[in-house]
Simulated scan of single mutants.
Amino acid sequence: MTAQTDPQGTSWWRRNQMRAAPWLFLAPGIAFFALYVIIPIFQSFQISLYRWDGLGEARYIGLDNYDQLLDDAAFYTSLMNNVKWLVLYLLAIPGGLFIALFLNQQVRGIRLYKSLFFFPFVISQVVVGLVFAWFYNPSIGLLNPVLDLFGLGPMNVLGNPSTVTYGIIAAGLWPQIAYCMILYLTGLNAVDPDQVEAARLDGAKGLKMLWYVILPQLRPATFIAVVVTVIGALRSFDMISVMTNGGPFGSSRVLAYYMFEVSLSEYGFRMGYGAAIAVVLFLIMLVYIAFFLWRMWREEREG
């Protein structure tokens, strides 16, 4: 079969090669993204409308799973913990920025310092959780001896419902700050030296140089850092699973972990109820990131 040609004898492929070639390269990635991301999202919405144990016949119950969420104290505890994660996890962004500014210096031994700050990023989240669980251990951990040096009493961070969430967040911030630091180090390499030099000639230095010259050029890095940090805060699971299993008394649960519990744990394989929690988590994430994208687009348009 010959390719379709126009009256001049040119094939369709030759006339549309520049437009079609990028889509051919993107097609495998788009197919996998649709198969493993987009379709499961819609399936979660569908499953949340059913009562289903994952094996037997699913029974349609409409919005009953969402109605049950409104009266579920464990759901509100998980939601509140997610808010704490979201607010405190954003500290990784300024933390990573200031470490990147420190490491972006031409001083002796700076490569060693970069390696030390980069080290947390390459460690598995499970390993980080185990290390901090040992550090917080009231019997053999290092936290209480350090507190004794300052005259403070012993603490059981992971055994106290009022401190357990903050202890896990502190553990999660360690590798997250390292990740943001890498993003900002990459962004600092792209900063225009001519703008920096012109600002110096105008007398800008210190915070003024940072705020008016450096940070505007780091917007792409900031955007990625915020999106990744927000997603990481809202889907936090592995640290909680390793360090506390949601305890004590369910006080360290977040939505992702509670979804796992009700779907695949001792709550009886309630797949529909777990899917409803997943939908709520997805909508929170979608609204937050969409708002940030809108702000970035508006700032770029005004700029």
Rank of each mutant, 00 (worst) to 15 (best):
G129S: 11
Q195V: 04
A290R: 12
A190N: 11
F292Y: 14
P28I: 15
I231S: 11
L86A: 13
L79D: 03
F119S: 09
G153A: 11
D71P: 03
M181R: 01
S44P: 02
S48G: 12
T165W: 00
S44M: 15
Y212D: 07
T10F: 07
F102A: 14
F249H: 12
A221V: 10
R59T: 14
A58P: 14
R270N: 10
G109T: 03
N137G: 04
P216A: 05
L215N: 03
G250I: 04
G272M: 01
I140L: 14
A92N: 03
A58E: 05
Q176E: 14
R253M: 07
R51L: 12
F45Q: 13
F150Y: 12
G167N: 04
Q217S: 12
I284W: 05
Y113A: 12
Q217R: 11
W211P: 01
A92G: 05
L91P: 03
F291C: 15
Y76R: 13
G141F: 01
Y66N: 05
L97V: 11
Q17W: 08
T244F: 00
G141L: 04
G187W: 01
N245V: 05
N245P: 03
I61R: 01
A20R: 07
L255M: 13
Y50W: 14
N82G: 09
P120Q: 06
I38C: 13
G109V: 04
A190P: 05
D192F: 03
F121V: 13
G151Y: 06
A73W: 12
S251R: 06
T163M: 14
Y60D: 07
M80R: 15
F135H: 02
L70W: 08
A233V: 11
Y267I: 01
W85Y: 14
S78H: 02
D202P: 01
D72P: 04
C180H: 02
W134N: 12
Q195I: 06
W134M: 11
A178L: 03
Y50P: 04
Y258M: 01
D71H: 13
R235W: 01
S241V: 01
G129H: 01
P161C: 09
G203S: 07
G153P: 06
S162G: 05
